[in-house]
């Protein structure tokens, strides 16, 4: 089966501004794929192209096997899309909103709808315009989960929500994870770190990397080398060593291709007498910060590589 979401050199320009630059994505079936990156990175643009809200300037995308430019009408019976700033029909009560949407979806599950309403504590008799932002997001998510979509696309769903509401939304979403692929965008790495199976990092319209979460966290280590005396520094640092800092008899860096055996060999090759070596696992947030800094530096110094992406270790 083809991947639920695939993009190939997806580019979007708004007049002269390049919002997305050659995005290549492959979201595996059943994944919880988090597309992360700072504000303005192009996450929302990418999602809107996938949902056929925008057309791409160039490139190609498929969603559930359909060309994104043809995503419309019936195709949305298998897609649940929720966005942080989606405009809902404020004049409708929550229960009427659900009732209105119900006939559009052949697979709408009334029991699941009721369960979601309970789980999210939705005030069914209140108008959508009278709900708090968090409650509106819960109503939108409930209305997008009740028909058991194969693909759930969430654009910054937790942005600005209090932790309790965010946890409720995540729980509701994860409860459906076994039967759907989830594609979620966020600028907050910490909030997706706990549940994402895959992660892609988008910056300035370019995908810096895309990987499985476990692979990514295993690849990166903070390394600290302690010497008896300040060591002689090599002329050129290994490419996989990032953010190298020296302070007297201590050298610190981030290893982006961590393998205990290989990394130790690399250290011995560059330094003769290391007294102590420590490897510390990194949080996703720390990894992204390192990558973001490296990306900016490389982007400034070297431009882009042959694939259009900045060269990263």
């Amino acid at each position: 089966m083809s991947s639920p979401i695939q993009t190939e050199n997806l580019t979007k320009k708004f007049r002269r501004v390049e919002a997305l630059n050659g995005l290549n994505l492959d979201v595996p079936d059943g994944a919880i794929y988090a597309l992360v990156g700072p504000n303005g990175a192009g996450k929302t643009t990418a999602i809107k192209i996938l949902m056929n809200i925008f057309g791409p300037t160039s490139g190609h995308a498929t969603v559930l096997g359909t060309d994104s430019k043809r995503i419309a009408g019936h195709a949305f019976t298998a897609i649940g899309y929720v966005s942080e700033n989606q405009e809902l029909p404020g004049w409708m009560r929550v229960d009427r909103f659900m009732a209105y949407l119900r006939p559009f979806y052949p697979s709408w599950d009334r029991d699941l709808e009721n369960e979601l309403a309970r789980q999210f504590d939705l005030p069914l008799d209140r108008k959508l315009k009278d709900l708090s932002r968090g409650m509106r997001m819960k109503a939108a998510l409930a209305s997008s989960l009740a028909y058991r979509p194969k693909l759930i696309v969430l654009d910054e769903p937790f942005s600005g929500l209090d932790p309790l509401v965010r946890d409720q939304l995540i729980e509701g979403m994860l409860a459906r994870a076994s039967e759907a692929t989830i594609f979620i965008s966020s600028h907050d790495m910490a909030e997706v770190e706990t549940f994402a199976s895959h992660v892609g990092y988008l910056e300035q319209g370019r995908l810096r990397f895309s990987d499985e979460m476990t692979t990514l966290t295993e690849r990166f280590r903070e390394v600290e080398l302690t010497f008896d005396l300040p060591p002689a520094l090599p002329e050129k640092w290994p490419e996989s060593w990032m953010q190298v800092e020296t302070s007297g008899a201590v050298v610190q860096f981030v290893e982006s291709r961590f393998n205990a055996e290989r990394t130790n060999a690399e250290i011995r090759k560059n330094f003769n007498s290391v007294r102590d070596v420590t490897f510390t696992p990194m949080s996703l947030r720390s990894i992204f910060l390192v990558m973001a800094k490296a990306g900016r530096r490389v982007g400034q110094e070297r431009g882009t590589d042959e694939t259009g992406h900045p060269h990263l270790p």
Binding site: I53, G73, H74, A75, F76, Y81, Q86, E87, L101, F104
Partner: peptide
């Protein structure tokens, strides 16, 4: 590009 209905099966 924010209307709820444009990503519904209309």
């Amino acid at each position: 590009d924010r209307q709820y209905w444009i990503t519904r099966p209309y």
